[in-house]
């Protein structure tokens, strides 16, 4: 991936988790690749569907092709670290290059009757779009991870109450009657599942190469990209 590094305006990331896994050899590399495929397949597909390159193929096929071509490259992660980009930006940058490669390849060997349009490049916009899609991707992955943890720990009802309140937006009074518990107990059970979700969310950032001390800044950065005003919270923190 040869794009010039885009300087991040936010605290630098470290790559402890990824370094540790890569140092473990093949199985560690597989863990890192699995994390990337699980979290990023969906935002890359959504991104692809929003481009004029949709004619290149089915989103699933294109994204899997990208993963196959890049994640097995011996220097993929070393190049990323040298570059200094956030992992998601490195991936979307690489994905744009991959689409260009596919565009050229298919233009050289056009299918009968098809005419390839001019390639459509938008690297800067792609990074902005990727940040917004990554909010959804991270939260979805964290929900899946926390749900599995709750099921494994016999906290299925806790999870369902968390889901009804925090995902479904229902008040505890209504949820409590459905589950036959006091509203306060429902709130306590939701908090248990909520903590699992928060741990899962922060773990995903860690697996993405964000150092523990930079996770709050990373979340704030993404929320600002989504147009969320955090001034009130930040003011409260400064007064602490």
């Amino acid at each position: 991936m040869g794009a010039p590094a885009k300087k991040d305006a936010f605290p630098p990331t470290r790559t402890d988790y990824i370094d540790d896994e890569l140092n473990r050899g093949t199985s560690g590399r597989q863990n890192v690749n699995r994390h990337i495929m699980e979290v990023y397949a969906w935002p890359l597909k959504v991104y692809f569907l929003g481009t004029k390159d949709r004619w290149l193929g089915e989103p699933e096929e294109i994204v899997q092709g990208f993963f196959a071509s890049r994640l097995e490259m011996p220097n993929f992660f070393a190049d990323w670290k040298r570059n200094g980009m956030k992992l998601r930006h490195w991936l979307i940058n690489g994905f744009c290059f991959y689409l260009k490669e596919e565009h050229r390849r298919r233009s050289r060997h056009p299918r009968p009757g098809s005419e390839a349009p001019e390639p459509y490049y938008e690297d800067e916009r792609a990074i902005e779009k990727m940040d917004l899609q990554c909010i959804v991707a991270f939260v979805r992955s964290a929900l899946e991870m926390a749900e599995k943890i709750c099921m494994d720990q016999d906290l299925a009802t806790h999870w369902r109450i968390f889901h009804a309140h925090y995902y479904g937006g229902r008040p505890y009074a209504s949820i409590a009657s459905e589950f036959g518990v006091h509203p306060t107990r429902a709130a306590v059970m939701a908090r248990t599942a909520r903590r699992k979700f928060i741990h899962a969310l922060r773990e995903l950032f860690r697996r993405d190469g964000v150092a523990e001390e930079s996770i709050d800044a990373e979340i704030r950065n993404l929320l600002r990209q989504a147009g969320i005003d955090l001034r009130e919270e930040e003011q409260g923190e400064n007064e602490e």
């Binding site: 929900l143 922060r202 979340i219 929320l223």
Partner: peptide, 22 residues
Amino acid sequence: QPYEDITEVQATSLLRMGLPGP
């Protein structure tokens, strides 16, 4: 897919949960 129906509003609200309060 699980949570396929999630909206951006839900996602940002849940992401915000990851920020510790005071």
